[in-house]
Amino acid sequence: MVDTVDGGASIGFLAPLDRTAAVGWWRERAAAVAAGGLVVWVASDGGRVVGTVGLVLPDKPNSRHRAELVKLMVHRDARGQGLGRALLATAERAAADAGISLLHLDTETDSPAERLYAGTGWTRIGTIPDYAANPHGTLRPTSIYYKRPGTREPAR
């Protein structure tokens, strides 16, 4: 997470992100993971975490068919090897296997992440201006995407 923020990715934190703060953020999610409201996959290389992705599962009866994809991160040293695509495919497969029929996410407009989602069949439905500050504190737009797991819908 620290490397991702230091690399300029807008994942909800400002740079520089302190390692203690990052660890604390993950620890705060332990209860959600234990309760089944958050599912997280971790990619490691020799015991070192090099990537993550998560799904937030809604707790309301009318939204149990959908989930939000969150915190897809790949360490800069591990990029360009297909790890982001593999983590994304893992989350999509698990969602489909769990009966989730709709996934959604938001990501910084014009970011490398946006290119990944568009290139893997996610459909962009629009942007929200000045949605969140990037790691340097500049307000940036976000793009909203959706995908039906198990399909490869054409990006629009």
Rank of each mutant, 00 (worst) to 15 (best):
A9F: 14
I11A: 02
I11K: 00
G12R: 01
F13V: 03
A15K: 08
R19Q: 15
T20W: 04
A21L: 12
G24S: 14
W25K: 02
W26K: 05
W26M: 11
R27C: 08
E28R: 12
R29H: 15
A30E: 15
A32D: 15
V33Q: 06
A34R: 13
L38T: 03
V39G: 11
V39Q: 15
V40G: 08
V40M: 07
W41R: 13
V42T: 14
V42F: 02
S44F: 01
G47Q: 09
G47Y: 03
T52Q: 02
T52N: 03
G54E: 09
L55M: 06
L55C: 07
D59V: 14
D59G: 15
K60N: 11
S63L: 13
R64K: 15
R64C: 11
H65R: 03
R66C: 09
A67G: 06
V74H: 03
A78R: 02
G80P: 09
Q81N: 13
G82F: 03
L83S: 12
L83R: 04
G84F: 01
R85W: 07
R85Y: 05
A86Q: 13
A89M: 05
T90V: 10
D97Q: 14
A98G: 11
G99C: 07
L102W: 10
L102A: 14
H104Q: 11
D106E: 13
D106V: 02
E108D: 01
T109Q: 07
T109A: 10
R115D: 00
Y117Q: 03
A118E: 06
A118G: 09
G119D: 14
T120K: 03
T127I: 04
I128T: 08
I128S: 12
P129V: 03
D130V: 02
Y131K: 00
Y131H: 07
Y131V: 00
G137S: 04
T138E: 10
R140E: 00
P141W: 01
T142V: 07
S143W: 00
S143G: 08
K147L: 09
